[in-house]
Design a protein around this nucleic acid. Sequence first.
RNA 1: GGAGGGUUCGCCUAGUGGCCGAUGGCGGCGGUCUUGAAAACCGCUAUGGGUGGUGACACUCAUCGUGGGUUCGAAUCCCACACCCUCCGCCA
Length: 418
Amino acid sequence: MIDLRLLRDDPDTVRASQRARVESESVVDELLRADEQRRAAVQAFEVLRAEQKALGKQVSQAKGEEKAALLSRTKDLAAEVKAAETAATQAETALRQAHLAVSNVVEEGAPPGGEEDFVVLREVGQKPDLASPRDHLELGEALRAIDMERGAKVSGSRFYFLTGVGALLELGLLQLAIAQAVEYGFTPAIPPVLLKPESMEGTGFLGAHASEVYRLEADDLFLVGTSEAPLAAYHSGEILDLERPIRYAGWSTCFRREAGSHGKDVRGILRVHQFDKVEMFSYCRPEEAHDEHLRLLAWQEEMLAKAEVPYRVIDVAAGDLGSSAARKYDCEAWVPSQGRYREVTSTSNCTTFQARRLGIRYRDADGKTQMAATLNGTLATTRWLIPILENHQQPDGSVRVPKALQPYLGGRDVLEPA
RNA sequence: GGAGGGUUCGCCUAGUGGCCGAUGGCGGCGGUCUUGAAAACCGCUAUGGGUGGUGACACUCAUCGUGGGUUCGAAUCCCACACCCUCCGCCA
Protein backbone atom coordinates (compact mmCIF):
# COMPACT_ATOMS: atom_id res chain seq x y z
CA MET A 1 0.00 0.00 0.00
CA ILE A 2 1.30 3.41 -0.91
CA ASP A 3 1.71 6.32 1.48
CA LEU A 4 -1.58 8.21 1.57
CA ARG A 5 0.18 11.38 2.60
CA LEU A 6 2.22 11.29 -0.57
CA LEU A 7 -0.97 10.70 -2.49
CA ARG A 8 -2.68 13.75 -0.99
CA ASP A 9 0.32 16.03 -1.33
CA ASP A 10 1.47 14.93 -4.73
CA PRO A 11 -1.03 12.82 -6.64
CA ASP A 12 0.74 13.56 -9.92
CA THR A 13 3.76 11.55 -8.86
CA VAL A 14 1.51 8.59 -8.23
CA ARG A 15 -0.25 9.08 -11.56
CA ALA A 16 3.09 9.28 -13.36
CA SER A 17 4.16 6.08 -11.67
CA GLN A 18 1.02 4.30 -12.79
CA ARG A 19 1.66 5.55 -16.31
CA ALA A 20 5.24 4.25 -16.27
CA ARG A 21 3.86 0.86 -15.25
CA VAL A 22 1.27 0.97 -18.01
CA GLU A 23 -1.37 0.64 -15.30
CA SER A 24 -4.63 2.48 -14.73
CA GLU A 25 -4.42 6.10 -13.65
CA SER A 26 -8.05 6.27 -12.65
CA VAL A 27 -7.41 4.09 -9.59
CA VAL A 28 -5.39 7.00 -8.24
CA ASP A 29 -8.39 9.30 -8.37
CA GLU A 30 -10.61 6.61 -6.93
CA LEU A 31 -8.21 6.30 -4.04
CA LEU A 32 -8.18 10.05 -3.51
CA ARG A 33 -11.95 10.06 -3.41
CA ALA A 34 -12.13 7.09 -1.06
CA ASP A 35 -9.64 8.79 1.23
CA GLU A 36 -11.73 11.93 1.37
CA GLN A 37 -14.94 10.04 1.92
CA ARG A 38 -13.42 8.08 4.71
CA ARG A 39 -12.18 11.16 6.49
CA ALA A 40 -15.60 12.78 6.20
CA ALA A 41 -17.33 9.66 7.52
CA VAL A 42 -14.90 9.30 10.40
CA GLN A 43 -15.35 12.90 11.40
CA ALA A 44 -19.13 12.67 11.34
CA PHE A 45 -18.93 9.64 13.58
CA GLU A 46 -16.47 11.24 15.97
CA VAL A 47 -18.63 14.30 16.53
CA LEU A 48 -21.62 12.16 17.42
CA ARG A 49 -19.58 9.85 19.55
CA ALA A 50 -18.09 12.72 21.53
CA GLU A 51 -21.59 14.00 22.19
CA GLN A 52 -22.69 10.60 23.34
CA LYS A 53 -19.79 10.29 25.72
CA ALA A 54 -20.46 13.71 27.20
CA LEU A 55 -24.12 12.89 27.73
CA GLY A 56 -23.19 9.56 29.21
CA LYS A 57 -21.16 11.32 31.87
CA GLN A 58 -24.13 13.52 32.77
CA VAL A 59 -26.39 10.49 32.98
CA SER A 60 -24.11 8.81 35.45
CA GLN A 61 -24.28 11.84 37.72
CA ALA A 62 -27.94 12.78 37.33
CA LYS A 63 -30.82 11.17 39.12
CA GLY A 64 -34.61 11.15 39.25
CA GLU A 65 -36.50 13.20 36.71
CA GLU A 66 -33.38 14.86 35.39
CA LYS A 67 -31.94 11.46 34.59
CA ALA A 68 -35.13 10.35 32.85
CA ALA A 69 -35.05 13.47 30.68
CA LEU A 70 -31.46 12.86 29.69
CA LEU A 71 -32.13 9.23 28.90
CA SER A 72 -34.89 10.12 26.48
CA ARG A 73 -32.38 12.11 24.46
CA THR A 74 -29.58 9.59 24.55
CA LYS A 75 -31.71 6.88 23.04
CA ASP A 76 -32.00 8.64 19.68
CA LEU A 77 -28.38 9.63 19.78
CA ALA A 78 -27.33 6.04 20.26
CA ALA A 79 -29.03 5.10 17.03
CA GLU A 80 -27.34 7.94 15.20
CA VAL A 81 -23.95 6.95 16.56
CA LYS A 82 -24.50 3.40 15.45
CA ALA A 83 -25.41 4.49 11.93
CA ALA A 84 -22.45 6.84 11.71
CA GLU A 85 -20.13 4.12 12.91
CA THR A 86 -21.41 1.72 10.30
CA ALA A 87 -20.89 4.35 7.63
CA ALA A 88 -17.36 5.04 8.84
CA THR A 89 -16.52 1.34 8.83
CA GLN A 90 -17.84 1.00 5.31
CA ALA A 91 -15.83 3.99 4.16
CA GLU A 92 -12.77 2.44 5.74
CA THR A 93 -13.32 -0.83 3.91
CA ALA A 94 -13.82 1.02 0.64
CA LEU A 95 -10.60 2.92 1.23
CA ARG A 96 -8.69 -0.27 1.78
CA GLN A 97 -10.01 -1.73 -1.44
CA ALA A 98 -8.98 1.36 -3.36
CA HIS A 99 -5.66 1.42 -1.56
CA LEU A 100 -4.83 -2.14 -2.58
CA ALA A 101 -5.54 -1.31 -6.22
CA VAL A 102 -2.67 1.15 -6.50
CA SER A 103 0.81 -0.26 -7.08
CA ASN A 104 3.96 0.97 -5.41
CA VAL A 105 5.40 4.23 -6.68
CA VAL A 106 8.17 3.43 -9.13
CA GLU A 107 11.66 4.54 -8.16
CA GLU A 108 13.09 7.32 -10.21
CA GLY A 109 15.39 5.94 -12.86
CA ALA A 110 13.51 2.70 -13.46
CA PRO A 111 12.96 2.18 -17.19
CA PRO A 112 9.36 2.87 -18.23
CA GLY A 113 7.38 0.35 -20.25
CA GLY A 114 6.63 -3.36 -20.23
CA GLU A 115 8.40 -6.68 -19.97
CA GLU A 116 10.51 -6.11 -23.09
CA ASP A 117 11.67 -2.66 -22.06
CA PHE A 118 14.30 -3.71 -19.53
CA VAL A 119 17.72 -2.11 -19.69
CA VAL A 120 20.88 -4.21 -19.65
CA LEU A 121 23.21 -2.70 -17.06
CA ARG A 122 26.20 -4.95 -17.66
CA GLU A 123 27.37 -8.30 -18.93
CA VAL A 124 29.88 -10.13 -16.79
CA GLY A 125 32.04 -13.16 -17.47
CA GLN A 126 33.19 -15.07 -20.50
CA LYS A 127 30.64 -17.18 -22.37
CA PRO A 128 32.07 -20.64 -23.01
CA ASP A 129 32.98 -21.54 -26.54
CA LEU A 130 30.96 -24.67 -27.20
CA ALA A 131 30.45 -26.15 -30.64
CA SER A 132 27.26 -28.04 -29.79
CA PRO A 133 26.36 -27.57 -26.18
CA ARG A 134 24.33 -30.27 -24.44
CA ASP A 135 21.52 -28.95 -22.33
CA HIS A 136 21.41 -29.31 -18.56
CA LEU A 137 19.03 -32.25 -18.66
CA GLU A 138 21.17 -34.27 -21.01
CA LEU A 139 24.19 -33.53 -18.86
CA GLY A 140 22.29 -34.10 -15.65
CA GLU A 141 20.93 -37.45 -16.80
CA ALA A 142 24.35 -38.62 -17.91
CA LEU A 143 25.73 -37.68 -14.50
CA ARG A 144 22.72 -39.34 -12.82
CA ALA A 145 22.18 -35.98 -11.18
CA ILE A 146 18.69 -35.16 -12.44
CA ASP A 147 15.86 -37.65 -12.91
CA MET A 148 12.84 -36.02 -14.52
CA GLU A 149 11.25 -39.27 -15.65
CA ARG A 150 10.87 -40.68 -12.22
CA GLY A 151 9.87 -37.29 -10.91
CA ALA A 152 6.97 -37.39 -13.35
CA LYS A 153 6.18 -41.00 -12.48
CA VAL A 154 6.00 -40.23 -8.79
CA SER A 155 4.53 -36.74 -8.74
CA GLY A 156 3.65 -35.62 -12.25
CA SER A 157 5.02 -33.14 -14.73
CA ARG A 158 7.43 -30.44 -13.55
CA PHE A 159 8.64 -32.64 -10.71
CA TYR A 160 12.07 -34.21 -10.54
CA PHE A 161 14.56 -36.03 -8.36
CA LEU A 162 18.00 -34.68 -7.73
CA THR A 163 20.26 -37.61 -7.03
CA GLY A 164 23.92 -38.25 -6.35
CA VAL A 165 26.10 -35.36 -7.48
CA GLY A 166 22.93 -33.44 -8.41
CA ALA A 167 21.79 -33.50 -4.80
CA LEU A 168 25.28 -32.69 -3.58
CA LEU A 169 25.58 -29.80 -6.01
CA GLU A 170 22.29 -28.34 -4.87
CA LEU A 171 23.07 -28.69 -1.18
CA GLY A 172 26.53 -27.28 -1.74
CA LEU A 173 25.22 -24.30 -3.64
CA LEU A 174 22.69 -23.47 -0.96
CA GLN A 175 25.22 -23.92 1.81
CA LEU A 176 27.64 -21.70 -0.03
CA ALA A 177 24.92 -19.07 -0.22
CA ILE A 178 24.13 -19.37 3.48
CA ALA A 179 27.83 -19.20 4.32
CA GLN A 180 28.24 -16.02 2.30
CA ALA A 181 25.16 -14.45 3.86
CA VAL A 182 26.34 -15.28 7.35
CA GLU A 183 29.72 -13.82 6.53
CA TYR A 184 27.99 -10.52 5.75
CA GLY A 185 25.99 -10.51 8.94
CA PHE A 186 22.72 -12.06 7.81
CA THR A 187 20.79 -14.17 10.28
CA PRO A 188 20.20 -17.53 8.65
CA ALA A 189 16.60 -18.66 8.92
CA ILE A 190 14.62 -21.74 8.07
CA PRO A 191 11.02 -20.57 7.96
CA PRO A 192 7.78 -22.50 7.87
CA VAL A 193 6.66 -23.20 4.32
CA LEU A 194 2.99 -23.44 5.19
CA LEU A 195 1.41 -20.07 5.86
CA LYS A 196 -1.88 -18.84 7.20
CA PRO A 197 -4.05 -16.84 4.79
CA GLU A 198 -3.38 -13.55 6.55
CA SER A 199 0.38 -14.02 6.34
CA MET A 200 0.10 -14.81 2.68
CA GLU A 201 -2.23 -11.90 2.11
CA GLY A 202 -0.05 -9.48 4.01
CA THR A 203 2.83 -10.07 1.68
CA GLY A 204 0.61 -9.59 -1.34
CA PHE A 205 0.96 -13.08 -2.73
CA LEU A 206 -2.75 -13.66 -2.87
CA GLY A 207 -3.22 -10.75 -5.25
CA ALA A 208 -1.93 -11.14 -8.77
CA HIS A 209 -0.10 -14.34 -7.82
CA ALA A 210 -3.13 -16.09 -6.32
CA SER A 211 -3.35 -18.72 -9.04
CA GLU A 212 0.35 -19.51 -8.58
CA VAL A 213 -0.08 -20.54 -4.98
CA TYR A 214 -0.81 -24.02 -3.69
CA ARG A 215 -3.56 -24.10 -1.13
CA LEU A 216 -4.23 -26.85 1.37
CA GLU A 217 -7.95 -26.60 1.67
CA ALA A 218 -8.44 -28.98 4.57
CA ASP A 219 -6.25 -26.84 6.80
CA ASP A 220 -6.64 -23.44 5.18
CA LEU A 221 -2.90 -23.04 4.72
CA PHE A 222 -0.81 -22.03 1.75
CA LEU A 223 2.49 -23.41 0.50
CA VAL A 224 5.02 -20.63 0.06
CA GLY A 225 6.36 -19.77 -3.36
CA THR A 226 9.35 -18.05 -1.75
CA SER A 227 10.62 -17.57 1.77
CA GLU A 228 10.11 -13.86 1.20
CA ALA A 229 6.56 -14.42 2.41
CA PRO A 230 7.34 -15.87 5.86
CA LEU A 231 10.35 -13.57 6.28
CA ALA A 232 8.22 -10.51 5.60
CA ALA A 233 5.44 -11.72 7.87
CA TYR A 234 8.04 -12.57 10.55
CA HIS A 235 8.09 -9.02 11.94
CA SER A 236 4.55 -8.05 11.02
CA GLY A 237 2.91 -5.75 13.51
CA GLU A 238 6.23 -5.04 15.21
CA ILE A 239 8.21 -1.90 15.89
CA LEU A 240 11.84 -2.66 15.09
CA ASP A 241 15.14 -1.10 15.98
CA LEU A 242 16.56 -0.23 12.57
CA GLU A 243 19.70 1.53 13.68
CA ARG A 244 21.20 -0.79 11.11
CA PRO A 245 19.36 -3.02 8.64
CA ILE A 246 18.00 -6.32 9.90
CA ARG A 247 18.90 -9.04 7.42
CA TYR A 248 17.77 -12.62 7.11
CA ALA A 249 18.89 -15.35 4.77
CA GLY A 250 15.97 -17.72 4.46
CA TRP A 251 16.45 -21.27 3.24
CA SER A 252 13.29 -22.96 2.11
CA THR A 253 11.68 -25.18 -0.37
CA CYS A 254 9.40 -23.18 -2.67
CA PHE A 255 6.22 -24.36 -4.34
CA ARG A 256 4.64 -22.91 -7.44
CA ARG A 257 1.67 -24.12 -9.41
CA GLU A 258 2.97 -22.65 -12.68
CA ALA A 259 -0.68 -22.50 -13.67
CA GLY A 260 -0.27 -20.04 -16.51
CA SER A 261 2.85 -21.52 -18.04
CA HIS A 262 1.56 -24.57 -19.91
CA GLY A 263 3.93 -25.55 -22.67
CA LYS A 264 6.53 -23.02 -21.54
CA ASP A 265 9.99 -24.17 -20.49
CA VAL A 266 8.79 -27.72 -20.10
CA ARG A 267 12.17 -29.38 -20.44
CA GLY A 268 14.37 -29.96 -17.43
CA ILE A 269 14.34 -28.05 -14.17
CA LEU A 270 14.00 -24.50 -15.45
CA ARG A 271 10.37 -24.20 -14.45
CA VAL A 272 9.22 -26.62 -11.80
CA HIS A 273 6.61 -26.94 -9.07
CA GLN A 274 9.12 -27.35 -6.29
CA PHE A 275 12.64 -26.07 -5.77
CA ASP A 276 14.93 -24.81 -3.05
CA LYS A 277 16.11 -21.30 -2.55
CA VAL A 278 18.18 -19.11 -0.28
CA GLU A 279 16.55 -15.72 -0.15
CA MET A 280 17.94 -12.53 1.33
CA PHE A 281 15.47 -10.31 3.13
CA SER A 282 16.20 -6.86 4.60
CA TYR A 283 14.32 -4.54 6.84
CA CYS A 284 15.75 -1.03 6.87
CA ARG A 285 14.94 2.65 7.11
CA PRO A 286 13.37 4.02 3.90
CA GLU A 287 16.19 6.46 3.26
CA GLU A 288 18.57 3.52 3.26
CA ALA A 289 16.56 1.28 0.97
CA HIS A 290 18.16 2.45 -2.25
CA ASP A 291 21.68 1.66 -1.05
CA GLU A 292 20.55 -1.57 0.53
CA HIS A 293 19.09 -2.61 -2.79
CA LEU A 294 22.44 -2.14 -4.49
CA ARG A 295 24.12 -4.10 -1.71
CA LEU A 296 21.75 -7.02 -2.25
CA LEU A 297 22.54 -6.91 -5.94
CA ALA A 298 26.28 -6.90 -5.21
CA TRP A 299 25.91 -9.95 -2.98
CA GLN A 300 24.02 -11.74 -5.73
CA GLU A 301 26.79 -10.96 -8.17
CA GLU A 302 29.33 -12.24 -5.70
CA MET A 303 27.48 -15.55 -5.55
CA LEU A 304 27.31 -15.75 -9.33
CA ALA A 305 31.03 -15.18 -9.47
CA LYS A 306 31.50 -18.13 -7.11
CA ALA A 307 29.40 -20.25 -9.44
CA GLU A 308 31.70 -19.06 -12.23
CA VAL A 309 28.79 -18.44 -14.51
CA PRO A 310 28.53 -15.67 -17.14
CA TYR A 311 25.57 -13.39 -16.54
CA ARG A 312 24.06 -10.03 -17.22
CA VAL A 313 22.24 -7.62 -14.94
CA ILE A 314 19.01 -6.07 -16.10
CA ASP A 315 17.08 -3.13 -14.76
CA VAL A 316 13.50 -4.37 -14.93
CA ALA A 317 11.02 -2.02 -16.60
CA ALA A 318 8.29 -0.39 -14.55
CA GLY A 319 5.53 -2.43 -16.15
CA ASP A 320 7.18 -5.69 -15.12
CA LEU A 321 7.89 -4.88 -11.48
CA GLY A 322 4.95 -6.45 -9.76
CA SER A 323 2.80 -4.30 -7.54
CA SER A 324 5.07 -4.21 -4.47
CA ALA A 325 8.41 -3.33 -6.02
CA ALA A 326 9.57 0.19 -6.71
CA ARG A 327 12.65 -1.08 -8.52
CA LYS A 328 13.87 -4.49 -9.51
CA TYR A 329 17.13 -5.89 -10.81
CA ASP A 330 17.41 -9.37 -12.26
CA CYS A 331 20.57 -11.32 -12.87
CA GLU A 332 20.30 -13.60 -15.83
CA ALA A 333 22.79 -16.38 -16.35
CA TRP A 334 23.97 -17.50 -19.74
CA VAL A 335 22.40 -20.77 -20.83
CA PRO A 336 24.49 -22.13 -23.72
CA SER A 337 21.92 -24.69 -24.94
CA GLN A 338 19.38 -21.92 -25.40
CA GLY A 339 21.85 -19.32 -26.57
CA ARG A 340 20.35 -16.79 -24.24
CA TYR A 341 20.26 -15.44 -20.72
CA ARG A 342 17.76 -16.78 -18.20
CA GLU A 343 16.74 -15.26 -14.89
CA VAL A 344 18.50 -16.76 -11.88
CA THR A 345 18.12 -13.98 -9.33
CA SER A 346 15.81 -11.08 -8.72
CA THR A 347 16.01 -8.35 -6.15
CA SER A 348 13.21 -5.95 -5.32
CA ASN A 349 13.09 -2.76 -3.34
CA CYS A 350 9.59 -2.68 -1.91
CA THR A 351 10.21 0.58 -0.04
CA THR A 352 7.44 0.98 2.56
CA PHE A 353 4.78 -0.62 0.39
CA GLN A 354 4.93 -4.12 1.83
CA ALA A 355 5.69 -2.94 5.36
CA ARG A 356 2.62 -0.70 5.42
CA ARG A 357 0.36 -3.63 4.71
CA LEU A 358 2.13 -5.78 7.31
CA GLY A 359 2.43 -3.02 9.91
CA ILE A 360 6.21 -3.14 10.19
CA ARG A 361 7.65 0.03 11.68
CA TYR A 362 10.69 1.39 13.42
CA ARG A 363 11.47 4.24 15.78
CA ASP A 364 13.33 7.20 14.33
CA ALA A 365 15.82 9.44 16.14
CA ASP A 366 12.94 11.45 17.64
CA GLY A 367 11.34 8.31 18.99
CA LYS A 368 8.52 8.50 16.47
CA THR A 369 7.29 5.40 14.74
CA GLN A 370 7.85 5.31 11.00
CA MET A 371 7.13 2.80 8.30
CA ALA A 372 10.06 0.48 7.59
CA ALA A 373 11.28 -0.47 4.14
CA THR A 374 11.63 -4.07 3.00
CA LEU A 375 13.78 -5.58 0.29
CA ASN A 376 14.38 -9.07 -0.95
CA GLY A 377 16.68 -10.87 -3.31
CA THR A 378 17.58 -14.38 -4.44
CA LEU A 379 20.94 -15.69 -3.35
CA ALA A 380 20.79 -19.15 -4.90
CA THR A 381 18.18 -21.55 -6.23
CA THR A 382 17.88 -24.94 -7.81
CA ARG A 383 17.69 -23.23 -11.17
CA TRP A 384 21.35 -22.27 -10.87
CA LEU A 385 22.23 -25.90 -11.57
CA ILE A 386 21.30 -25.21 -15.19
CA PRO A 387 23.96 -22.61 -15.97
CA ILE A 388 26.44 -24.37 -13.71
CA LEU A 389 26.10 -27.66 -15.57
CA GLU A 390 25.92 -26.13 -19.03
CA ASN A 391 28.66 -23.54 -18.79
CA HIS A 392 31.12 -25.94 -17.23
CA GLN A 393 30.48 -28.85 -19.57
CA GLN A 394 33.32 -30.38 -21.52
CA PRO A 395 33.17 -32.15 -24.91
CA ASP A 396 33.23 -35.58 -23.30
CA GLY A 397 30.11 -34.88 -21.26
CA SER A 398 31.93 -34.32 -18.02
CA VAL A 399 31.31 -31.15 -16.00
CA ARG A 400 33.85 -29.00 -14.23
CA VAL A 401 33.03 -28.06 -10.65
CA PRO A 402 33.44 -24.39 -9.74
CA LYS A 403 36.17 -24.02 -7.17
CA ALA A 404 33.86 -22.72 -4.45
CA LEU A 405 31.62 -25.76 -4.78
CA GLN A 406 34.34 -28.40 -4.79
CA PRO A 407 34.41 -28.86 -1.00
CA TYR A 408 30.74 -29.84 -1.13
CA LEU A 409 31.47 -32.52 -3.72
CA GLY A 410 34.14 -34.34 -1.84
CA GLY A 411 36.84 -32.18 -3.35
CA ARG A 412 36.09 -33.31 -6.90
CA ASP A 413 36.95 -30.76 -9.57
CA VAL A 414 35.17 -32.60 -12.35
CA LEU A 415 32.04 -34.75 -12.52
CA GLU A 416 32.20 -37.72 -14.89
CA PRO A 417 29.21 -39.40 -16.53
CA ALA A 418 28.33 -42.48 -14.55
C1' G B 1 -9.68 -36.59 18.30
C1' G B 2 -11.20 -35.76 23.94
C1' A B 3 -10.97 -32.60 28.56
C1' G B 4 -9.62 -28.21 30.88
C1' G B 5 -7.21 -23.21 31.19
C1' G B 6 -6.01 -18.71 28.93
C1' U B 7 -5.62 -14.04 25.40
C1' U B 8 -5.23 -6.47 29.01
C1' C B 9 0.10 -1.12 27.43
C1' G B 10 8.00 -4.06 25.57
C1' C B 11 7.42 -8.28 29.56
C1' C B 12 4.58 -9.83 33.94
C1' U B 13 0.10 -8.31 36.30
C1' A B 14 -4.76 -5.58 38.57
C1' G B 15 -9.35 -4.68 36.96
C1' U B 16 -17.38 -7.85 37.09
C1' G B 17 -21.25 -1.89 33.90
C1' G B 18 -20.10 5.02 34.12
C1' C B 19 -14.86 7.83 38.67
C1' C B 20 -10.89 2.88 33.10
C1' G B 21 -6.75 4.45 28.15
C1' A B 22 -7.00 1.38 31.89
C1' U B 23 -3.56 -0.78 38.41
C1' G B 24 1.06 -2.37 40.28
C1' G B 25 5.88 -4.47 39.29
C1' C B 26 9.98 -5.33 35.86
C1' G B 27 12.60 -3.34 31.96
C1' G B 28 13.81 1.34 29.35
C1' C B 29 14.66 6.80 29.34
C1' G B 30 15.60 11.45 32.08
C1' G B 31 16.78 13.80 36.78
C1' U B 32 18.51 14.36 42.17
C1' C B 33 22.56 12.52 45.09
C1' U B 34 27.94 10.77 43.98
C1' U B 35 34.89 11.97 42.00
C1' G B 36 32.48 7.95 39.00
C1' A B 37 29.26 3.82 39.47
C1' A B 38 25.73 1.11 42.39
C1' A B 39 21.79 1.87 45.78
C1' A B 40 17.87 5.16 47.11
C1' C B 41 14.39 8.79 45.64
C1' C B 42 11.56 11.73 41.81
C1' G B 43 9.57 12.08 36.90
C1' C B 44 8.53 10.08 32.02
C1' U B 45 7.48 5.57 29.33
C1' A B 46 1.22 1.94 24.01
C1' U B 47 -0.56 2.48 19.03
C1' G B 48 -3.46 4.36 15.12
C1' G B 49 -6.78 8.02 12.94
C1' G B 50 -8.94 13.01 12.50
C1' U B 51 -8.90 18.47 13.12
C1' G B 52 -6.06 22.99 14.01
C1' G B 53 -0.78 25.22 13.90
C1' U B 54 5.24 26.58 9.89
C1' G B 55 6.54 24.03 14.34
C1' A B 56 7.64 22.01 19.59
C1' C B 57 2.30 21.01 20.30
C1' A B 58 -3.09 21.27 21.36
C1' C B 59 -7.87 19.13 21.03
C1' U B 60 -10.55 14.84 19.79
C1' C B 61 -11.98 9.71 18.35
C1' A B 62 -10.69 4.59 18.22
C1' U B 63 -8.12 0.29 20.14
C1' C B 64 -8.12 -4.45 26.57
C1' G B 65 -7.52 -11.60 20.75
C1' U B 66 -11.45 -10.97 16.36
C1' G B 67 -16.55 -10.23 14.90
C1' G B 68 -21.47 -9.49 16.46
C1' G B 69 -25.21 -8.55 20.46
C1' U B 70 -27.39 -6.35 25.14
C1' U B 71 -27.23 -1.14 27.21
C1' C B 72 -28.15 5.83 27.32
C1' G B 73 -23.07 3.84 28.47
C1' A B 74 -18.92 -2.42 27.85
C1' A B 75 -11.96 -4.31 29.23
C1' U B 76 -16.15 -5.71 32.46
C1' C B 77 -22.55 -9.00 30.63
C1' C B 78 -24.23 -12.47 26.26
C1' C B 79 -23.13 -15.18 21.48
C1' A B 80 -19.84 -16.88 17.67
C1' C B 81 -14.98 -17.44 15.93
C1' A B 82 -9.57 -17.37 16.03
C1' C B 83 -5.18 -18.27 18.46
C1' C B 84 -2.12 -20.03 22.57
C1' C B 85 -1.14 -23.32 26.77
C1' U B 86 -1.77 -27.95 29.80
C1' C B 87 -3.28 -33.01 30.22
C1' C B 88 -5.10 -37.63 27.73
C1' G B 89 -5.32 -40.37 23.18
C1' C B 90 -3.18 -41.24 18.27
C1' C B 91 1.02 -40.93 14.95
C1' A B 92 6.15 -40.13 14.01
